[in-house]
Amino acid sequence: MATVAAAAPQAKTASSPGIWTPAYSLWLREIVRFYRQKARVAGVIATPLLFWIVLGSGFAYSFHSSSGSGSYLAYFFPGSVVMIVLFTAIFSMMSLISDRNEGFLLSVLAAPVNRSAIVLGKVLGGATLAAIQGVIFLAFAPLVGDHPGAGAVLLSILAIVLISFELTALGFAIAWPMDSPQAFHAIVNLLLLPLWMLSGALFPADRASGWLAWLMRLNPLSYGVDALRNALFPAEHTLFPLDVNLGITAAFCVLVFAASWAIVNRRTHKPAA
C-alpha cells in the first residue's frame, strides 16, 4: 500500500488563487500603468478643465439656468465631473483591447483565475482612476461659488465612485468582444457621448422637449449626474431626490457588472483571445 502511495506523481497542488489576489494584481497594474504614462495623467486632468471653462463660458451667454445660483458654469459643474469620469473610464477600458491584441490578456485567460476576478480587477482599476480624478476636480467647486461641507463632499465622493464604477463596467462590457480600438471609438461616439449629453450634464431634462425628456429619464447616467447635483447644490431643483438617484445608480452598477461578468463567462468554441 505504501509503495502505491509513493508512486503517486508529485501532486503540485497549487492552491486556487481565489478572487481577491488576482483582482488586486490586475487593479494594481492599471494604476501603475497609468502613472508611468505621464501624457495620460496630464491629458486626463487638463482636458476636462479646458472643456469646462471654454464650453461653460461659451454657453453661459446663450443659456441661463432659471433656478438656483443662475450661473451656467455652476450648472455645468456636476456634468464636467461626470465627463472626466467618462473620459477616464473609456480610456482605461480601451486598454482591454490592447491587452487582447498584444497578448497580455492571453496569459491572464490561461491562468486558473475565476473570470469574475478579471472583471473585478480591471473594472476596479479603471474606476479607481476615474474616481480619483473626479474627486480632484471637486476642488474647483469654490470657483463657481459652491462651498460644500464635509457631508456634501462625502456624498459627492460616493456619487462619483458609483458613477465611475458603472461607466467603467459599461466600458468593459463594450470593449471585451472587440478587437480594434477604431470599433470601440465608434461605439464611444455613438453611445457613450450621447449618454453623457443626455444626462442632464449640459441642460436639464425638464427644459427639454417631450421625447428628449423621456430619453433623459431612461438614461441611467442622468441619475448619477442628478445625485452629484443634489450633493453639491442641495438648493438646486433636480428631477429626483438624492436617495432615489443614488439607489438607481447603484442598481445600474450591479446590472452592468453582471453583464460584463456574463459576457466574459460565455462558453464558446471560438478562440478566447
Partner: peptide, 12 residues
C-alpha cells in the same frame, strides 16, 4: 513586476 503579477494569478 510582471512575474509578481503572474504569480498572483496562480495564487502565489
Amino acid at each position: 513586476e510582471n512575474l509578481k503579477h503572474q504569480g498572483h494569478l496562480y495564487g502565489l
